[in-house]
């Protein structure tokens, strides 16, 4: 098993993701520089949070054209497991590996706080160790997390159960208010997967909720799920 964490200029959650995979979960993990295309030996690739290339033009736009993303597209099409967290999710959207786009948060503010997520699909490599409808307390930290897709795309996502996480109340109810869906994401969408399930992205930061010191360990289950599904592959 070998996991890779991509480092873009401007990534700032790369060390957190590496720490959780390597130190907390004890998995062989390596860095992947944004100019590298050498990823075929990896079992999974993490696109971490941050502001890749300063988020110039649009969040994730420049990163989606970087050399490593050319390799990640091939890797994903061949069935490789790819998880995008926050900016990593935005990069997956810009790359076309996941459908939709991110708009500014509805109140135009950078939001950094805990949210509650309801697990909508446990049949993905990122949620296989979750209970159905389990509620996870995980923080968000973003300016553009207001998920948008046209109505036809959202219908497709629902039909194929590609919506993996929705913003919810602590009790797991889906309510579109400022408290439980602070960025205004369409249909409370916090995270999705592709139809094949090997590519996933979410705005909240599970790596920031993976040790008791951080106030929540609910994020750990995503990485544990991913590792378990790679082992059983």
């Amino acid at each position: 098993m070998k996991l890779g964490v991509v480092v873009f200029p401007g990534s700032n959650c790369d060390h957190d993701a590496f720490h959780v995979l390597h130190d907390v979960l004890g998995q062989p993990t390596e860095w992947v520089w944004h100019e590298s295309t050498h990823i075929h030996h990896l079992d999974a690739v993490i696109l971490p949070g941050g502001f890749a290339y300063g988020d110039y033009l649009r969040t994730g736009a420049i990163a989606s054209h970087s050399p490593v993303m050319g390799a990640v597209k091939k890797f994903a099409r061949a069935g490789g497991v790819v998880l995008g967290i926050c900016n990593g999710f935005q990069i997956l959207l810009e790359s076309g590996l996941l459908p939709g786009a991110m708009l500014r948060n509805r109140r135009l503010k950078f939001l950094c706080r805990f949210v509650h997520l309801r697990v909508e699909n446990t049949a993905t490599p990122f949620t296989s160790a979750c209970r159905p409808a389990q509620v996870l307390k995980i923080p968000i930290a973003h300016m553009e997390g207001n998920y948008y897709a046209d109505a036809a795309t959202v219908r497709e996502l629902e039909r194929h159960q590609q919506i993996v996480f929705r913003y919810a109340t602590p009790a797991g109810e889906i309510v579109d208010d400022e408290e439980s869906n602070p960025n205004g994401a369409l249909a409370n969408i916090a995270g999705i997967a592709n139809r094949e399930r090997n590519v996933g992205g979410l705005m909240p930061h599970p790596e920031r909720a993976s040790e008791p010191l951080m106030g929540s360990t609910d994020g750990l289950v995503l990485f544990q799920s991913m590792i378990a599904s790679l082992v059983s592959k």
Partner: peptide, 8 residues
């Protein structure tokens, strides 16, 4: 291909 995101 670059300057716009055709989704939005």
């Amino acid at each position: 291909d670059v300057l716009t995101n055709p989704v939005v």
